[in-house]
Structures are given as C-alpha cells and as structure tokens.
Computed example of a mutant assay.
Amino acid sequence: MAKTIFITGASRGFGKLWAEAFLKRGDNVVATARDTNTLNDLTAAYGDKILALQLDVNNRADVFAAIEKATQKFGSIDTLINNAGYGLFGAIEETTEAEARAQIETNVFGLLWVTQAVLPVMRKQGHGHIIQLSSVVGVATLPILGVYNASKFAVEGLSETLATEVKGFGINVTILEPNGFATDWAGASAASTTPMDVYQPVRDAFQAGLTDDIFGVPEATTDAVLKLVDAENPPLRLFLGKIALPWVKQVYADRLATWEEWNDVSVAAHGK
C-alpha cells in the first residue's frame, strides 16, 4: 500500500534522492524546498503523486500551513523526514551571533516546528513515523563544525525525548546519523565563518582528514531509507555509512574510561 511521505529540504542532496526513490515505487510525496523550481523534474515526471511546496522551515506559521495542505491533498502523512538543514564551517570563536542563530534556527527550531505541526495529524490517525536528520557529529564532534555539532546534539536530545512521549500514540521516531557523504552539503549548501589566522592549523588538520575514502555514495542510502520507512519496528537510531560506528565506538570507550577514572569524585559529589 502506498505511503504518504513528507520531506523537507527536498531541493537537492539526500532530500531529493529519497523523494524520487519513494515516487519511483509509487508512494505519494510532499516535497518542500525554498525554491520549488528545483523540483520541476519530479513534478513533470510524477504528476499528482508529488505535491511540491515552497517552504522555509524557519517560518512556523508556514510550516503548519504546509502540513495542512499536505493532508488536504493526500488525506494523511505516514512518514515525516525532517531533512532541511545546512552546515556552518568555522571555529567557535570565529562564529558571529547572526551565523550561530541562523544555524540553530534552521537545524533545531525548523525541525521542531515541522515536528510539532505533524504530531496532531499522526495522533489523530493513530500511526506515523518521524525521521529526524541528525549526523554522526550529533554523537561525536569534529573541530571547525562547533555550532553545527551543537545543533545536531540538540536534535538528538529533542528526538530521543520525543520518542518516549509519542510511542503511546502509535508514532515511531528514528534519528538518522549519516557520516560524510559526497553531496554538496560542504559546498553550495554550506556557510562559512570569516577565518582567524590563529585557527588555521586546526582548519588544515580538519581538511587533511577529509580524504575521498571516508565519503559515502549518496545514492547508496536510498535502499536503507526505504527499509527504514517500511520497518514495523524501526530503530530509534540508525547510522548511514561505514565510518560512523567504528568512530563512535572509540569515542564512547574513551568517555566511559574517563567517567570511570573520575567516578570516586562523582560519587562523593552526591553527598549521601
């Protein structure tokens, strides 16, 4: 049976790839983008199976209106994929107030508004699946991405909490955590701070680590996302790519070792 999938940030990258994959197999897709002209090829190919909506997720009223248009068109929303977002490259000290606020507004508040807007629909129909695009840097950090890391850590905490709140309504939540992929996320879609010379060695080391072999093939993610959407009991978290799990296992081993080393101090701080 065809599902109705609502995808934000569908103009390019993962969002567009996944939208087309759902359309190819016969699902209905509500695809949002700041510029719907980027979706003309899909609307021409799939006609009434796709509803392309202009949307800036930072505008909460427009988000609620988009959800309403989607339900008027297709009657339900089975899956929400909160994909809209971008990367901000720069050391924390370099980041201006405007840059930091814009990053958090889109990556965190934009995701929150869409989540809030779809929840009444999913509660009423008694089922739904909310898929939140986080990142491997939502659980382990990289330098020169400090505010972006922070935005994805926020997505992790918000979404894990959400899962406990809505399970009783028949709504599942999955946090998708891709490692690096060869999309234009680090290109046209990204923003950058004005660099300070003092952080150039950190920036150089970061760039040196971005070798081609660590980046996954974006098209290879479509089967994983289709399986996730079709899963009867989807996981709370899912990595995309082969780099993420080995890296995070080492990060968590280091964290556990530090907590254990300082556990006497921690216990004494309890006071009783």
Rank of each mutant, 00 (worst) to 15 (best):
A140E: 04
L142S: 13
P143G: 09
G146F: 05
Y148S: 02
Y148V: 04
N149D: 09
S151I: 01
F153G: 03
E156Y: 01
S159R: 01
L162A: 08
L162W: 09
L162K: 12
A163H: 11
A163V: 07
T164F: 12
G168H: 08
G168Q: 09
F169C: 07
G170E: 05
N172W: 07
V173L: 13
T174L: 10
E177F: 04
N179E: 14
N179L: 00
G180W: 07
F181Q: 03
G187I: 10
A188T: 14
A190K: 12
T193G: 11
P195D: 03
P195Y: 08
Y199V: 10
V202G: 08
R203I: 05
A205R: 11
F206S: 13
F206D: 07
Q207H: 06
A208S: 13
G209D: 06
L210Q: 14
T211W: 05
T211G: 12
D212P: 06
D213W: 08
I214S: 03
F215D: 03
F215A: 08
G216I: 01
E219I: 02
E219H: 00
T222S: 14
D223H: 08
A224M: 14
K227P: 06
D230P: 09
D230R: 14
A231F: 06
N233T: 15
N233K: 15
P234R: 05
P234C: 04
L236H: 11
L238K: 13
L240E: 12
L240N: 09
G241L: 13
